[in-house]
Structure formats: C-alpha cells, structure tokens
Computed example of a mutant assay.
Amino acid sequence: MLLAIEQGNTNTLFAVHDGATWIAQWRAATDSSRTADEYAVWLSQLLNMAGLQFGVLDACIISSVVPQSIFNLRNLSRRYFHVEPLVIGENAELGIPVRITKPAEAGADRLVNAIGAHIVYPGDLIVIDSGTATTFDVVAADGGLEGCAIAPGINLSMEALHAAAAKLPRVAIQRPEHVVGKDTVEAMQAGVFWGYIGLIEGLIARIKAEWARPMTVIGTGGVASLFHGATSAIDHFDPDLTIRGMLEIHRRNPAKASL
C-alpha cells in the first residue's frame, strides 16, 4: 500500500491507497519541528483505528512546501515503513515539462496539481489552489507548467486585517448574504469574501486574455469549497486533485515504487 504525504503550510494530509482506491485520509496541523517519531506515534494510532498497521505500507511519496520538514518525513518512511520515499522535487520523475524561468522554484504542490489536473481535464487549464496562498497555475494541453500568479490566501488576508487594525476583531471566513455588511463582522466577511471572488474572476479573465486560447478552470485546495456556487468563472471544483497527482507520479516511477 502507498502512503501519500501532502504537506502544505497550514495542514498535512496523510492518505493510504491500496492499489485500487484511497482507503483512509487524515489531516494534522503542519509543524516543521515535529520529529519522525512523533509522526509515527500519531500515525500508528490512526492506522490502528482503520484496521491497518505500518507493515502494510510498502511505498511512500512526499509532497511538501515546508523544506525543513522533509528530513523528518523522509526518516518516518525509512525508519517505520522501511522504504525510501519518492520526494517531489528531489528523486521523483514528473513526466511533464516545466516551462518557467527557474524550474527549481516551482513548489511541489504546484507540480503535483498540474499533473493531477492534466490527466483528467483536456486542453489548456488554469488550476486555482486556495490555501495559505492562492495560486493560479497555467497548465498547457501537453501537461506543461507554463507559469503562475500567486496571491495571499483568504484566511491570511482576514488575519492580516485583525493583526494590523486595532479595532477589527478576528472573525471566521464565510460567505455573507450581502456585499454591504450591517456591522463590523459582516463588513469584514463581505469585503474579504467578495473581494476574493473579484480577485479570482479578474485574474482568470486576464490570464485567459493573455493566453488567447480556450481554458478550463479547476478549483482545489483547503478553502476552495467556500467559493463553490459563488462564481461561474471556475468550471470544476476538484478536492482530490493533489492526491490524484501524487498517485500518478508514483505510478510514473515504477523503478522506485512497489504499488
């Protein structure tokens, strides 16, 4: 079985694939100081609750945008699963061209998303990943990563309002009924939420105009569901985009994988 570890700046996903389907998924808050042993204690309990154990895991793939965590995640795989993990950006062959000026700067999440989108959706794509940052990746019809626009994530923007303005409270992100709020909380929620819808729609329009070819827009990421139904600019919401891409990369590296 394959253990896929997808680590973002905020959350880390652990998912188990049995060769046919994803049979278990768990999330933990990302903590770059967490050791391999700490991960193992936490993960062993969750595996046990799912009727699994370390011995059934014979392959591991890691996608992380937190470089200081990769050492401990790699040690988790080596020490407890006794396998050398595939690490996106290090020893994993992607099978797609990366057509940006400095390919090494492309985040692992962006590379994985490009592959996860390309194998399902035909033609040229815009992949929007809404997390700590909001990224807009252009993926060509041949799967190549062409470039990106990066904006602060919606939660980061709300937190910045609270941190920088003494009288503005910390509030939860949600879709307000009205654009014009009747109190401070409603006003903040309306400004940030509908402002992000404007950001998304505006950048999609500009990317399409610059690309000058038809494009399909895919939304994914931890907070993408907030925007579902709020804009027609996103054609598909796909929460499994990242782990689908990781599974595909695993399959493209048969010499380094056992699944």
Rank of each mutant, 00 (worst) to 15 (best):
L2P: 03
L3Q: 08
A4V: 02
Q7D: 04
Q7V: 05
N9F: 07
N11Q: 06
T12C: 10
T12D: 07
A15M: 09
V16P: 04
V16L: 13
H17D: 00
G19R: 09
G19C: 09
I23D: 02
A24R: 05
Q25A: 04
W26A: 06
R27H: 13
A29I: 14
S32E: 14
S32N: 12
R34V: 07
R34W: 08
T35S: 02
A36S: 03
E38A: 15
Y39V: 04
V41A: 11
W42P: 01
W42S: 03
S44I: 03
S44E: 04
Q45A: 09
L46M: 12
L46V: 09
L46I: 06
M49P: 02
G51T: 00
F54E: 00
L57W: 00
A59D: 13
V65W: 03
S69V: 11
F71N: 11
N72K: 08
V83Y: 08
V83L: 11
L86N: 05
L86Q: 07
G89K: 12
E90Y: 06
N91C: 09
N91E: 03
A92Q: 11
A92I: 05
V98A: 10
P103E: 14
E105H: 15
E105M: 08
A106H: 15
A108K: 01
A108Q: 07
D109S: 12
R110T: 06
R110W: 00
V112E: 05
I115S: 12
G116T: 13
H118Y: 14
H118M: 10
H118E: 12
Y121G: 12
P122L: 08
P122R: 07
P122E: 01
G123Y: 04
L125K: 10
I126M: 11
D129S: 01
S130A: 13
T132M: 02
A133Q: 01
T135L: 00
V139R: 15
A141D: 13
D142I: 00
G143T: 00
L145N: 04
L145C: 06
E146R: 15
G147M: 04
A151T: 07
G153P: 02
G153N: 01
L156A: 10
S157I: 04
L161Q: 09
A163L: 15
A164F: 07
L168F: 09
R170V: 15
V171K: 15
I173E: 11
Q174C: 10
H178M: 13
H178P: 04
T184K: 11
E186K: 12
M188K: 13
Q189K: 10
V192W: 05
W194E: 00
L199F: 01
L199M: 02
I200F: 11
E201K: 11
I207V: 12
K208G: 05
A209I: 12
A212E: 05
G222S: 04
A224L: 00
S225P: 00
L226F: 08
L226W: 03
L226M: 10
H228W: 10
G229T: 08
T231I: 05
T231M: 09
S232M: 09
I234V: 15
I234E: 08
H236Q: 10
P239L: 07
D240V: 03
L241D: 15
L241Q: 14
R244D: 06
R244G: 03
G245W: 03
E248H: 14
H250T: 13
H250S: 13
R251Y: 05
R251S: 14
R251M: 10
N253L: 04
S258R: 15
